[in-house]
Design a protein around this nucleic acid. Structure first.
Length: 155
DNA sequence: GCCAACGTTGGC
DNA sequence: GCCAACGTTGGC
């Protein structure tokens, strides 16, 4: 299986890369994805060993802040079963789960944040879904070259 | 906090 | 299956 590359978004108010660093074993489950396209990526394509860019949305500044790695393949997002969770979805049941998640582990925090403006103005990154109009996917595939370029910018 | 651009829902 | 209404995302 060829290694793949992803960009995942999180609002740092809700969950930041610093929060991830403080997690047990610097690992957490990436819950709360409630979009079918993103769900399909998590369930079917996002596999152990894949690399992810961690992106802070709705923040100051907005941009890519570090790298993580997938450490568990897609499995049912159990927060959808929990009526106390804000990610609760009554239509998703354990026998037939609607939503999926993966586990991710912290790898690295960038020396500097790669802000959205820089990504937008870098011609090598102009094909990223991130900078295309109106794209709101919270989990999106990216190319190895794009991953490498952003890592280079962050160091 | 605003609001444009989406995705989803539900009436028909 | 269409599409208006609604809720959400996310940059600014």
């Amino acid at each position: 299986m060829k290694k793949k590359y992803w960009l995942v978004k999180s609002e740092p108010e809700a969950f930041s890369i610093d929060d991830l660093m403080k997690c047990n074993n610097q690992t957490t489950f990436w819950d709360g994805v409630r979009n079918y396209q993103a769900r399909n990526y998590l369930r079917d394509e996002c596999k152990i060993g894949d690399s992810l860019l961690f992106y802070h949305s709705n923040s100051e500044p907005t941009g890519v802040v570090g790298i993580c790695e997938v450490v568990k393949n897609g499995y049912p997002d159990f927060t959808a079963f929990d009526s106390d969770s804000k990610h609760f979805d009554e239509k998703s049941v354990p026998e037939n789960p609607t939503w999926f998640m993966v586990d991710i582990k912290f790898k690295k925090k960038f020396a500097r944040i790669v802000i959205l403006d820089e990504i937008k103005s870098n011609v090598k990154l102009k094909n990223m879904k991130l900078v295309q109009r109106g794209n709101r996917l919270s989990v999106m595939p990216i190319e190895k070259e794009e991953f490498d370029e952003i890592v280079k910018m962050g160091n």
